[in-house]
């Protein structure tokens, strides 16, 4: 049986196990492109034994639902935002804290360094979730409809859409604004009509969702750099022959590299497009924002595991 999905006899000489991957973004997203390319390489190197089929646009359900689908083996893999893994193991909070990473390269290295993450990434195996690796999910910056932001004081009185969690509301409060959770589908109209003053997201989403047209001031607060994780059902992964597992891991490393490069290229393109739509980008007093949110970081590092990983991340920054 192939719990990961259907077995099809394609052009390949042997039956192919197709790993179905749930994905919440469109086909143009760097993670989709990288996973699709990885699937082709995997198929070639395993002589058609394994391939990958990525289902974009939440067609297999919301991210939270796809975790259960992976746990049950209904689908093999899913790409999951950091905060959702926090709901299964709070220790994942370390990588979701503001200003924990100093650069994309550092995040790419640390979140895929076995010495740092192997314990964390295997911690959910008993629950049917194994974390294979981390993709770059962009860096989140504040944008608004009124003026460029330089210091926390500039955000005073502004309602900024944040992701649905107390931590995010608290973070935005420390940054000087008023964090307002809202489903992404309502945000465009809400900013346009004035329910919200702005939002916070990476350049890709900012441009793709056309928020540049209604909130033209994009300020590089760089407050969050939350990774996206590729998760797999551990039984399915362990069911692969060791040689194929090795190929899989090697190809995943390449996929993560490709995704990081592609993301950079797409950010450049998004900035160009946003500028054409009238957006203005500016640097901010980063130190002031870092100082403002420091208490939040302190309050979240509550046990030895998180403190140790945090120290390792800090060490890698030097």
């Amino acid at each position: 049986a192939t719990p990961s999905g259907s077995s099809t006899t394609a052009a390949a000489p042997v039956a192919t196990t197709v790993f179905k991957v749930a994905f919440n973004q469109p086909e143009t997203h760097p993670e989709y492109i990288a996973l699709k390319a990885m699937g082709e390489r995997l198929k070639q190197r395993t002589n058609g034994a394994y391939s990958i089929d990525v289902f974009p646009n939440e067609t297999l359900g919301a991210q939270a639902d796809t975790i259960q689908s992976v746990q049950s083996g209904t689908i093999a893999m899913s790409v999951i935002g950091g905060s959702l893994l926090e709901s299964l193991n709070p220790d994942f909070v370390v990588f979701d804290l503001p200003y924990v990473f100093t650069s994309q390269a550092q995040q790419r290295a640390v979140t895929n360094d076995p010495a740092v993450v192997s314990g964390l990434y295997s911690s959910l195996d008993s629950k049917g979730v194994h974390v294979l690796g981390a993709f770059y999910g962009g860096v989140r910056n504040v944008y608004n409809k009124t003026k460029p932001i330089n210091t926390p004081a500039d955000l005073a009185g502004m309602k900024i859409r944040v992701m649905q969690s107390d931590t995010n509301i608290e973070m935005m409060k420390l940054m000087g604004g008023t964090g307002t959770p809202m489903g992404q589908g309502d945000v465009y109209t809400a900013i346009q009509s004035g329910v919200l003053d702005g939002g916070e997201n990476n350049e890709l989403i900012y441009s793709t969702l056309k928020h540049d047209e209604i909130a033209p001031y994009y300020s590089y607060t760089r407050h969050l750099m939350v990774p996206d994780y590729l998760i797999i059902n551990p039984e399915i992964f362990n069911g692969m022959p060791a040689a194929d597992q090795k190929i899989f891991q090697e190809e995943l490393v390449k996929a993560i590299d490709q995704e990081n490069t592609e993301f950079g290229a797409q950010v450049d393109a998004a900035i160009t497009a946003a500028k054409a739509a009238g957006a203005k980008f500016n640097e901010v007093d980063t130190a002031a924002f870092q100082k403002a949110v420091a208490p939040l970081t302190e309050s979240k590092l509550t046990d030895d595991v998180t403190r140790k990983i945090y120290a390792q991340v800090q060490a890698a920054a030097k």
């Binding site: 049986a1 719990p3 999905g5 259907s6 359900g61 919301a62 639902d65 259960q68 689908s69 049950s72 083996g73 209904t74 489903g183 589908g185 309502d186």
Partner: peptide
Amino acid sequence: ILGVQNGVLTSAQRVYGGINSFP
């Protein structure tokens, strides 16, 4: 497509997920 075990699980999940929407 999925077999019975995962079929019932996914069905239940979809019923719930389908109405899990603020709008």
